[in-house]
Computed example of a mutant assay.
Amino acid sequence: MKSALFLTALLVGAPVAAHAADSNAPLRFVLIPKVVHPWFDKVNSGAQEAAVSLSKITGRQISVEYRAPQAADVSSQNDIIERAISTHPDGLILDLLDEKGNRATMEEAVDEKVPMTIFDSVAPEGMNITAVGADFCQQGTMAAERLAKLINNKGEVAIMMGVPTAPNHAIRAKCEQAVFAKYKDIKVVATGIDNDSIETGQKQASAIMQAHPNLAGWVACDAAGPVGIGQAIRESGKTGKVQEVGLDNLNDMIQLIKEGVAESSASSRPEMQGYWSVISAWQQAIGQKTPKYIDTGIDLITKQTL
């Protein structure tokens, strides 16, 4: 109800282009995430909610097609983007796997005059595209500082890097490393790469903990990694011995916090990212200007806040 009221106010107060105001034609947006993943299911849920609300308020049919790559592979993602462009949607909503690797395909969308909105990422340099998401450096810093406090600012730590080419994952990793560099008694002894796969994250975490039996704690750079880390901690019998601060609000992550396997998680609100990405895409489709960046904020999830 609150969302509908807000959108009504937004619609009434916003300057709408004349051609858009006169048109009742359906609007179709294509949402393309990094990979098939429960985190992106939450993004899609928020996107579909926005589409339903906008349809009710405007009286115009607005739909969101969700097309996810089966693996976190930039070639596969580019192929999906290119096929989406060929259908001439009213907007693309993208989460980039590789800023450089995705650029040529995005420039194709520009040439075809298909508007774009980026979520959970940053726009490639020189491309004027609205980005929706959290402050990724703040999120990584929050997790790393919390872990440092848990281990009394000393000990061996590891970082699960996610997809290293993904802009948001790379930003989080850089900022986490910067936090640990401040503490002379904290040493980053290993980094894993999970490629946004829980199973891969679990295998990587298990191998790293075997190689580093004195490991004190973990942080991650994506949503899949911390779930895999938590499963590895639980299965190795190191709950309470190896600390973990995770990312995001997957149900499995929340369960790990409830069990005490992970101490907390810094969540970037995926449902809100999907919701506001559709709002941005709709505004562009009806001829409105959109902001450069929409910050959806970060939640700290602990047993207490649950």
Rank of each mutant, 00 (worst) to 15 (best):
K2A: 15
A262M: 07
V278I: 10
F29Y: 12
D248N: 12
D111R: 15
P164D: 15
I186T: 04
I81T: 10
I80Q: 09
G287W: 01
E49G: 11
R269S: 02
I257L: 09
E271R: 14
P124L: 07
R269Y: 08
A21C: 05
W276Y: 12
A285I: 07
V74M: 06
G225W: 07
G217A: 08
E176L: 00
L300S: 06
Q304T: 14
K292C: 05
A4R: 15
V163Y: 06
I151L: 10
E235K: 12
S86C: 05
P167T: 11
R60A: 03
D41I: 02
L31Y: 01
E125R: 13
T200K: 15
I62T: 08
P164C: 12
Q70C: 07
W276R: 04
V74F: 07
V43C: 10
A25C: 03
E176D: 10
H37T: 03
D222Y: 03
T290K: 07
P291T: 09
A51Y: 08
V122Q: 14
I298Y: 08
H88G: 03
F119C: 06
R269E: 00
A20M: 03
D295G: 05
E49D: 14
I80M: 12
A84L: 06
D111S: 13
M253W: 00
I62W: 04
V188G: 04
F136K: 02
I171P: 01
Q304L: 10
E244M: 13
K100H: 12
S265I: 07
K113A: 14
K182E: 15
E235P: 00
I257H: 02
N102E: 05
E99T: 13
P26W: 11
T200Q: 15
Y183G: 00
I233E: 05
S86Y: 01
D222K: 02
A170L: 10
A14M: 15
W282E: 06
A158I: 01
A51L: 08
S3T: 13
L306R: 11
G101W: 05
A178R: 09
E125W: 06
V122P: 00
A25W: 02
Q243H: 12
N24E: 14
P15G: 13
G162I: 03
I229T: 01
M161Q: 14
G133Q: 00
S206F: 09
D299Y: 02
A21L: 15
T117I: 15
D120T: 07
H212A: 04
L306K: 07
C175P: 06
A25L: 14
G287T: 03
G240W: 11
Q255K: 15
S265P: 00
Q288L: 13
A109C: 12
A148V: 01
T58P: 05
K149Y: 07
N251M: 09
A21T: 12
P26V: 10
V16A: 13
L54I: 09
G162H: 06
T290L: 06
K149V: 08
N24A: 15
P124F: 09
A71V: 11
I81R: 08
I81D: 01
A266F: 04
V30P: 03
T191S: 14
A143D: 04
W39L: 10
P226M: 09
R28S: 13
A281K: 02
N168L: 05
S236Q: 15
E107S: 04
S23Q: 13
